[in-house]
Structure formats: C-alpha cells, structure tokens
C-alpha cells in the first residue's frame, strides 16, 4: 500500500548526506590510526564502552552451555574421561622423552656455537568478539597497549598459531587470523625426511593454502605443518609453532608447483582464550 510522502525531499537527503560525510571522515581517521598499528581514540572508546556488555553476554552463554551440556553429554563423558586419561599417560611419557632430547639438542647446539633462542613469554587473553567483521577474519582480545601489547605480536591458541596483532587500543587488541586472505606465514613440513618449506596463506575460508612448493617436493596428506621462522616480510613468527595438517596435495594449473591444502590446528570458529607471545 502506498502512503503519501509528507516529508520534503531536501530534508530527506540532508540526513544521509551528513551521515555519509561523517562516515568518510571517520573512515579516513580510523584508517590513518590503523596504519600506525593503533586504534583511533573513537574506536578505542567504543570498544571500551561495549566490551563489558559483549563479554557479559558471552559469559552468560558460556555459563548456560556449561550448565546444560553435561545433561546432553552425560553418557559420553565417562568414555571420554577414560580415553583422555590414557592419552595423558601416553603424552607424559612422550614429554619425558622430549625433555631429554631437548636438553641434548640444546647442549649440542651450544657446543657447536648455535645461539640458543629463549622461549617467548606468553600472556593469556580472553576473546571479546570472534569474527566481528564479515570483511576480515579477525578476533578482538581483552589485552591492549596497557598490557604491553604491540602491533605485529604473534597470537596462539593451545592447539596452534592464530595470527598476528594488527591494531592495539588501550584495553583491547585486534588479531588478524591466519585464515584471512591478507595473512601469510613462513612454514615447513615437520616430518624429518621432508622439511619442505613454503608459505601458508589464508584463503578467506576455514582452510589454509601452502604455496611456493616445488612440484616434486615430498609432501603427504597428514603431514604436520609448523612455522619456519623465516620470512621477515611476512612478519616474525617464531619457529616451530603448529599451523595445521596437510589435507590435500595437488599440482597447480601450470604443473610447476604443488598446491597444498592445510587444515588449521586451532579451531578458528571456537576460540575462547588465546596467548600473546611477548
């Protein structure tokens, strides 16, 4: 049904013209601030104002899920508990062996003059917002400049690399995930008889793509992929961080290089906490 327009056209367009002008101005301001790795004061203020509400809403959901999930999963829990206990026993044995190997490797590296790289300190952070924008794959964490966070720092989940800090506000920071098409990380196949290097790139979907790999390189489905510690231009990711596992190996259209799909180790759609490497 059509109704009579009671507004004058000039008034109708005036509002949108002003809003678009303000949007363009703020966009330039936001962009200029972000290029320096810091959030604009307005963005920081908006985040500070809305963060308690967002985290409160998340906390309510998490609490409700925890209260109700055991009812749904009661039957599975006992079997899962037994499986995890057996898994922990195996892992404890492996860790003891790895400590020995690590000590021996460190001793040998020191004897032949390699510099020992200290492990970076980790700062735990909670996720404020997961995938807040449809136009970039990112998360917002509740740590910021006041905690010593700077743009470019590496962020990990317990399972593996998440991405890199790309903007910092006083109390929060934005992290560009590895799955974003603007993100890339120098990577290497962990298998001792392969050690093929390449670059893992985000695809914009849930998987990564490992590129710059020769067509005759020894890569198999199931191989673990870790960060190589190389590629200054890609950002500094420490060596040996888990990235994911190879799910598909194929040739590109020219046949000169391999195209490798990698499933990320970290569950990017279920991140609840993260660690920032300081």
């Amino acid at each position: 049904m059509l109704l009579t327009d009671t507004h004058r056209p000039r008034n109708r367009y005036f509002g949108v013209v002003i809003c678009v002008a303000i949007g363009i101005g703020l966009g330039i301001w936001f962009g200029a601030s972000r290029s320096t790795g810091r959030s604009s004061p307005l963005a920081a203020a908006v985040r500070s104002a809305t963060q308690p509400a967002v985290m409160g809403a998340r906390a309510v959901g998490t609490w409700m899920r925890r209260q109700t999930s055991w009812v749904v999963r009661a039957r599975q829990l006992e079997a899962e508990n037994q499986r995890l206990r057996a898994h922990v026993g195996r892992l404890e044995g492996e860790i003891a062996g790895l400590h020995e190997a690590d000590a021996a490797a460190s001793r040998l590296r020191a004897q032949i003059g390699f510099a020992l790289t200290p492990l970076p300190r980790r700062l735990a952070a909670d996720v404020v917002a997961l995938h807040p924008s449809p136009y970039c794959d990112s998360v917002t964490l509740n740590r910021g400049a006041s905690d010593g966070i700077r743009a470019g720092m590496v962020v990990c989940a317990p399972q593996g690399v998440l991405g890199r800090v790309f903007e910092v506000a006083p109390g929060t920071c934005g992290v560009l995930l590895l799955t974003d098409s603007r993100c890339a990380i120098g990577s290497v196949i962990q298998r001792a008889d392969s050690r093929v290097t390449g670059v893992c790139r985000g695809t914009g979907a849930k998987s990564l793509s490992m590129v710059y790999v020769d067509h005759d390189a020894d890569v198999r489905v199931g191989d673990a992929v870790v960060s190589s510690g190389m590629g200054e231009a890609l950002g500094i990711f420490p060596k040996g961080l888990p990235i994911g596992r190879v799910t598909r190996v194929g040739d590109d259209m020219s046949g000169a290089a391999k195209v490798i799909d990698v499933a990320p180790a970290a569950a990017y759609d279920r991140i609840e906490e993260a660690y920032i490497l300081l």
Binding site: I22, L26, G27, T50, V139, T140
Partner: peptide, 16 residues
C-alpha cells in the same frame, strides 16, 4: 561506527 570499531579494515566503507 560500532562495527568498524571492532576490527574492520574498511572502516569508512562500512560506515557509509
């Protein structure tokens, strides 16, 4: 403004 504050790399385009 709210959406752009939470990490969009195209802040101005989002607002407009």
């Amino acid at each position: 403004i709210l959406q752009a504050s939470y990490g969009s790399v195209y802040a101005g385009s989002v607002m407009v």
